[in-house]
């Protein structure tokens, strides 16, 4: 039930990291994937990040009823929750839906239309050619998206706080600059790299071992998103437990 797919997943990864046939072609594919994953996801990441920051600000302000707690704490909470949890995890879950389903359906369709067989007949290491560029593209671009997400989330919080009167701009900026622990950013980057790897490798695995037709491609795509989301949350806990 668990060990056989896990073994297949490990063997697939071993094939993915086999030496490429021609680096120049892989380089082009990696750049294509970086554009598709990075540029293609900026819109959705921007929208969710701004709202995440705004909602966190408003809800934190709502819970801060004591006059003994300075309002600048709102900025600190938005900063830390964005860096440690909201930006990496929520972005990863959204990207699992967008990038993961795309990877699984793309590779799954290639499988059922024999395009992967065609690659193998030519003597090309199909897991390497199809999956490695996606993993490298995601592992480089998703951390950058998370950095953008953090910036936008904090900005969203600033505007929400100022416009609603929950916290003044001055207090908010004081809060986000106060007692910053740089290690939280390291944790955030570790999480985003791990999540990027999980999204692309699990989705690629689901697509690569699709058999049947269009219906099965849809099933693989759904399964890729569901398993990626669960694994992201598990990894989130493990990384937090190990690093914090």
């Amino acid at each position: 039930m668990f060990f056989q797919p896990f073994g297949k997943y490990i063997l697939l990864l071993k094939a993915v990291f086999r030496r490429p046939e021609k680096w120049s072609i892989y380089r082009k594919e990696i750049l294509k994937e970086m554009v598709a994953i990075g540029i293609g996801s900026i819109g959705i990441v921007t929208i969710i990040s701004v709202f995440l920051g705004a909602v966190t600000t408003v809800q934190t302000a709502f819970q801060l009823v004591s006059d003994f707690v300075p309002r600048s704490v709102i900025g600190t909470i938005v900063r830390d929750s964005s860096i440690l949890e909201l930006s990496p995890t929520i972005s990863a879950i959204v990207l699992a839906g967008k990038v993961g389903s795309s990877v699984a359906s793309q590779i799954g369709t290639m499988r059922v239309t024999e395009q992967i067989d065609a690659l193998e007949i030519m003597g090309i290491n199909s897991p390497g050619y199809l999956i490695l560029p996606k993993i490298v593209g995601a592992v480089t671009m998703i951390p950058l998206l998370v950095i953008i997400s953090i910036a936008l989330s904090i900005t969203g919080g600033y505007f929400a706080g100022s416009l609603s009167g929950a916290v003044t701009g001055q207090d908010y900026i004081y809060g986000i600059t106060k007692d910053f622990i740089p290690f939280t950013f390291t944790v955030c980057m570790v999480k985003s790299v791990m999540f990027a790897f999980i999204i692309t490798s699990i989705s690629a695995y689901q697509g690569f071992y699709t058999s049947g037709g269009a219906l099965e491609v849809g099933i693989s795509s759904t399964r890729a998103v569901v398993i990626s989301c669960i694994m992201i949350l598990c990894a989130d806990y493990v990384i937090a437990q190990l690093l914090l």
Binding site: T109, M110, T113, E114, Q115, D117, A118, I121
Partner: peptide
């Protein structure tokens, strides 16, 4: 060289 049933051209 192989010709596939569904041609298997890269879309």
């Amino acid at each position: 060289g192989m010709l596939f049933q569904g041609s298997a051209l890269f879309d």
